[in-house]
Design a binder for these strands. Sequence first.
DNA 1: ATAACTGCAAACGTTTTGCTACGCA
DNA 2: TGCGTAGCAAAACGTTTGCAGTTAT
Lengths: 142, 142
Amino acid sequence: MATAPDRLRKAVEKLKATGVRMTPQRHAILEYLLSTMSHPTADEIYKALEKDFPNMSVATIYNNLRLFKEAGLVRELTYGDSSSRFDANMSDHYHIICRRCGKITDFEYPPLIEVEEEAARKTGFRVDSHRMEVYGLCAECQ
Amino acid sequence: MATAPDRLRKAVEKLKATGVRMTPQRHAILEYLLSTMSHPTADEIYKALEKDFPNMSVATIYNNLRLFKEAGLVRELTYGDSSSRFDANMSDHYHIICRRCGKITDFEYPPLIEVEEEAARKTGFRVDSHRMEVYGLCAECQ
DNA sequence: ATAACTGCAAACGTTTTGCTACGCA
DNA sequence: TGCGTAGCAAAACGTTTGCAGTTAT
């Protein structure tokens, strides 16, 4: 398991390799995403970094999130609720979401390759990925 | 396999049992949802029914979709794209989505019960459901 | 008759865009 | 120094809401 600073350094390298520049704001957003397990929304990132960057605009958050997504550093999670969440944990894992408090918890499970294969067989698609989430009530909300 | 008019009749019954009234607009929206495999957005439903109901408002579409959802007649699909899609096929099935043209195709696969069980075991959640989609390129887009 | 519904327009929250000034490389 | 980027505000977008008039039961 790589340490947090280690993952940050690798992410910065990967970003720079795509030709983008490192700005303090960009660095802070990336660092925050890599440090948290909370799958924050754009607005939550905005609020979390407000004290360090009182002048940062939401547009900067969104611009950078798009950039990170394109670089393969974060995943966008679109659940039923109003806003997207962002996950910088790119390892194979799935999410379980509490219907009551909205908490998102990671859990490990072997990738569902056989579902992808069966879907490809039945539909004629060329499959590249899948997504799965489980819903329920977390321990506190039961 | 039930016929389309048959499913419509059953759906109307189920709705009426919840105490709502049947209006021509409501009936048309429901009929359209049950007749198509295309998982339409609210706006697509709006456009499809425009010729029959030139004065129908989008609010009516949204009101009814919420009602249908609460009655368990349709499912709301929230993928990454900007707007929700609605699926009146309530049988156990999963979706495969084309990254290029956005087409959504149903495919059957045994429900992933064991994933739910494992998630519950690992996280302490009480699980009630899950959601899964496969992504790729459809036969035409490859 | 009356409670539920439609249509309309305005409001809402999230995300995107156009632009100017700034600052990293 | 030059191009990419941040900040700002306005716009865009899908969706929800409040209300007045209409309609199914």
